[in-house]
């Protein structure tokens, strides 16, 4: 059922032109029965947004950098900065899975298409701003 909902979103998102004039392209990926939408934003293809859905929430995630990219001496400062940025950053929060730092936004399991697009745009902006702001902590 959640896979159907994701498929619908993927169809709606694919080819959508954002208010800023950036084109979205969306594809569905299947991993062991769990479906994920990969959304690429024109000119920002390096940082695609991944959308996954479970019974409780819809997650939009953008992967930032690997552990290996972090300057070891400044790791604590970076984590401190990320925790501090979590609050003022609109709609998104920092997170980590495995050795991958990420930024994500959680939504209700049934968002409107409009809200989802807004979430994607804000998350993408936040991702670029985050890397720009925190690149001093990276190698």
């Amino acid at each position: 059922m959640s896979n159907d909902a994701l498929a619908n979103f993927a169809t709606e998102l694919d080819g959508h032109l954002t208010e800023e004039g950036m084109k979205l392209s969306a594809t569905i990926m299947d991993n062991d029965g769990a479906h994920v939408i990969q959304v690429e934003i024109e000119d920002r293809e390096e940082f695609p947004i991944f959308i996954s859905l479970d019974s409780e929430q819809l997650l939009c995630t953008c992967y930032l950098w690997h552990d290996s990219e972090v300057n070891n001496e400044r790791r604590c400062d970076m984590l401190d900065a990320m925790t501090t940025l979590n609050l003022p950053m609109p709609l998104s929060s920092f997170g980590k899975v495995g050795d991958q730092y990420l930024i994500f936004g959680a939504m209700s399991a049934k968002p409107t298409l409009e809200d989802l697009i807004h979430e994607i745009c804000v998350l993408s902006d936040n991702s670029l701003n985050a890397i720009e702001t925190l690149q001093d902590y990276l190698n």
Binding site: M29, F50, L53, T61, V97
Partner: peptide, 9 residues
């Protein structure tokens, strides 16, 4: 779901 998403990603 997050773990599987991560794998796909």
């Amino acid at each position: 779901s997050i773990v599987k998403t991560t794998e796909a990603v």
